[in-house]
Computed example of a mutant assay.
Amino acid sequence: MIYGYMRISTQKERQTTDRQRITLLQYAEENSFTFDDIVEERISGTVKAAHREVFKALKTKTLRKDDILIITDLDRLGRDADDVIAELKDLKAKGIRVIALDIPYMNEFKKAQDSSIYNMVVDIVITLKAHMAQQEREKTVSRINQGLAVARAKGKTLGRPQAELSKVFIKEYEKFMSGAYGKISALQFAKIQGIGRSTLYKYINIYENKQSSEDKQ
């Protein structure tokens, strides 16, 4: 059995899968076969394949061993490179062959008929896809690090902005430190202020850092 899967990442009616359908039908005519069915799905490309209802139903209820799934673009198979790789591996394990018309060698109908050739081709595609995904991740990390370095060079403070202490807390904390509250614990002081212990220690740390900074000036 031969199936086609089309996806567009919008719910707008003016956006259609016509281009994909025409491409799939031309491919079928060129290779002298007829699709048993072509299904389409309107869903964001950010949604993982496992959460796409139409694709999930096609994979779990329709496709069987030795069936062929044809798509116009390999990336329509998943949300990102990792998702595409996972789907390719899963379909291969189930004995389902994927033809992606935008991928050289993976778009040849005759090669998909030969299990040994198909398995070799799809393994190469998975390896290349994984390598490209890793390179993209490394580039992203590199760009982030470069941006942070530039920000530091310009004297920008990175991370979340430090909380500002209210004048009321500073006044009460200094009274606590001077003994004006009597012999009470820090936890009791926190309860009086209506804050938790962790919040108190965070405020104390901010207070002490501020005091240390002012002493150095």
Score class of each variant (00 low, 15 high):
L148F: 06
N145Q: 14
S212D: 12
K216G: 01
R42Q: 13
A28Q: 05
V150S: 08
I2F: 09
R152C: 05
T10L: 04
Y118L: 02
I195S: 08
Q26P: 00
R19W: 06
P161I: 03
V39K: 10
V122A: 11
Q15P: 00
E53M: 11
Y3F: 15
Y207K: 03
R152W: 04
P104L: 01
I8A: 09
A50T: 10
T10R: 10
D123T: 12
I43M: 08
F55N: 00
Q134P: 00
R42L: 07
M120W: 04
R197K: 15
I99H: 06
Q217F: 09
A153T: 00
S115D: 14
Q146V: 09
I117A: 12
I99V: 14
I184C: 09
A186I: 07
L165I: 10
Y201D: 04
I96M: 10
F33P: 00
Y5Q: 08
Y5T: 02
Q188S: 12
R143F: 09
S9Q: 05
A49Y: 13
N209W: 01
S166Q: 04
A93H: 08
L91W: 03
D36W: 01
A28G: 09
K56P: 00
Q134N: 08
I195T: 04
D75I: 04
A153E: 12
L200M: 10
G155H: 03
R21Q: 11
L77E: 04
A186V: 01
F33T: 03
T127P: 02
F176W: 02
T157D: 14
T10F: 09
L101S: 03
V84L: 06
T199H: 14
K48G: 07
N205R: 15
G155C: 03
K65D: 08
D90E: 15
V121G: 03
R19F: 12
I103H: 05
I43S: 04
E208W: 03
R97W: 05
T62I: 14
I22M: 12
L63W: 09
T127E: 14
R143I: 01
L101M: 10
A130M: 07
I2D: 02
T17I: 13
A151R: 06
S32D: 14
